[in-house]
Nucleic acid binder design. Structure first.
Lengths: 128, 128
DNA sequence: AGTCTTCTACGAATTGTTTCGTAAACAAAC
DNA sequence: GTTTGTTTACGAAACAATTCGTAGAAGACT
């Protein structure tokens, strides 16, 4: 049984920062956040405290300035978000999602090639 | 400029029903909804009224029993949902999303083949 | 020690979503 | 025409997410 991870959009922004930077203080996270959105410091603090309550973040309170880090893996979180979206908006069809994503986005030749190779690797696995 | 479509999860459930069934009454939608969740009739009604205010649904009030239909296309809605998710959870990389989706889900050989063909068609287009 | 800054904690206001009770309009059935 | 059932409209309650002001603790600076 694996835990249900359902971050809100704001929470996901914070998780992204922590995944990229590793363990950080509220101030460090806030400084990154400030670049893209307009929010006060205590707003970021409160959000991260709530995320800690929800077990999305771990924190080290040994020092006055607490250190937070993601308590959920990027991969697992992405997996669950995708799955929910496939169920909610794509009638459960991964294929539909993938095609929509590719068709929508005007991927570069390099990207398409990368995906094609990945696909072949997977098809190969099926033959074993 | 195309309109921003941001349905909540509940709203998306209703959109899915209307996309599948076409124009329907509140009761018809509610009866489908009831199968998967537990909500009163007036809850469904209110949701659909709000969706009409938000221009997610059109309605025909010629008769006492109103007829609702989706005012946004499935394709456009799916496209926007995917794009938001790519930006919010996949660092803007469609490739990352596609690989995660494929890797996660254990797609069947047929599905993989279908996607591979789609890919080739796209790569072909790039050469024109 | 006293001042200044930084940080956490708390609580409240705001906003948005979801839920449903109740009433009024309307139609159908008796 | 009065009862019964279905529908819409309205309003309010319950809940969750977001925002931020304020207070107090902790440390740094002189």
């Amino acid at each position: 049984m694996s835990k249900l991870i359902k971050p809100t959009d704001s929470e996901l922004e914070i998780l992204n920062i922590l995944w990229a930077k590793g363990p950080s203080t509220v101030r460090e996270v806030h400084e990154v956040l400030e670049q893209s959105k307009d929010a006060g410091y205590t707003t970021t603090l409160k959000l991260m405290q709530i995320m800690h309550e929800k077990k999305l973040l771990d924190r080290d309170t040994a020092n006055k300035t607490h250190i937070y880090k993601a308590a959920v893996s990027q991969k697992q979180t992405q997996g669950q978000i995708i799955q929910r979206m496939i169920d909610a908006a794509f009638n459960g069809s991964t294929t539909q999602l993938v095609m929509q994503a590719l068709g929508n986005h005007n991927a570069s030749k390099e990207e398409l090639e990368q995906i094609r190779q990945y696909l072949e690797k997977m098809e190969g696995k099926k033959d074993e």
